[in-house]
Design a protein around this nucleic acid. Structure first.
Length: 269
DNA sequence: CGAAAAACCTGGCAGC
DNA sequence: TGCTGCCAGGTTTTTC
């Protein structure tokens, strides 16, 4: 479900829990992508010292370690008051219970995970990640250098977390459309201007999406169950056979690595 | 070795 | 009403 903007929107919602105490947890399903760590179902009176995001991971920092959460394709949160009557639904796998609130995690496909990690520095998931898209390290020079050492097409390359984190299928399509680059171009064919366009449009699109509360296609919602409004801003994703914003050609759909790719065959070369 | 495909899951929807 | 096949915001593991 979530690419970087969606996880960032969730993070900003969860920040209100910093300083609160987790009284205990309820695990209704232990088998997510990997088994939920035992430290997580044994939580008792733990203060949340911080909550942050790295790539598409959420990190809840407690006194003696961290909860590392990934939402996979279909994970979502709902934060609500204990006074609210909320019925437990199918796939409501985990609750964190606070004195006045409950944070509930739902994940139909169970590709997400909740793992305990004592130190973030040597965590195997966090170690192999590339730079954040909003960092200075993600710039045109960096991209241009990297483009020379792989034989991937540009779209699959942008979705590789070792190159840059957080760009998934929706935003890869949108970034290449604004950059006027064909998704099947080999990275070796990119020039410095192409790389500059990719960097600028990545920052622009991701930032704009965060402002609009992310993109809801089906599952994604903010922690108050409201949908993200960036769906309305999508120019090519899921817009097969609609007209290109710039040239009025028909948007085309193809597959890359079995994933849907949308582009304007005239503008993107 | 790097790139592509398979695997992990469930549910919704189109078409028959 | 089924049933079948395809599709879905991701990432690791396996295969070639």
């Amino acid at each position: 479900m979530p690419e970087l903007p969606e996880v960032e929107v969730i993070l900003r919602g969860l920040k209100s829990l910093i300083g609160d105490k987790i009284l205990y947890s309820i695990i209704r399903c232990y088998n997510l992508r990997w088994p939920v760590s035992s430290e997580i179902y044994k939580l008792k009176n733990n203060f949340i010292l911080n909550i942050k995001r790295r790539a598409r991971y959420l990190i809840i920092k407690l006194e003696y370690g961290n909860i590392l959460i990934h939402l996979g394709m279909s994970g979502s949160f709902y934060l609500f008051d204990k006074t609210e009557k909320v019925i437990i639904k199918k796939h409501d796998h985990i609750d964190l219970i606070f004195s006045n609130k409950i944070l509930r995690y739902n994940d139909p496909r169970r590709f997400g995970f909740w793992l305990w990690t004592k130190n973030l520095e040597n965590n195997k998931f966090l170690q192999k990640l590339g730079p954040e898209p909003f960092s200075k390290k993600f710039n045109d020079n960096y991209l241009f250098q990297k483009s020379k050492f792989t034989r991937k097409n540009v779209k699959n390359w942008l979705m590789d977390n070792k190159l840059v984190v957080g760009i998934g299928n929706i935003y890869a399509n949108e970034i290449l459309f604004l950059s006027k680059i064909h998704p099947n171009r080999l990275t070796k064919s990119l020039n410095t201007q192409d790389c500059c366009n990719i960097v600028n449009n990545t920052k622009k699109i991701l930032l704009e999406s965060i402002k609009k509360g992310g993109t809801t296609i089906r599952n994604f919602s903010k922690i108050n169950k409201k949908k993200g409004d960036f769906s309305k801003e999508l120019k090519v994703y899921k817009r097969e056979l609609e007209k290109c914003l710039f040239c009025h050609s028909y948007i085309k759909r193809i597959l890359n690595n079995k994933r849907a790719t949308f582009f304007c065959p005239k503008c993107q070369i």
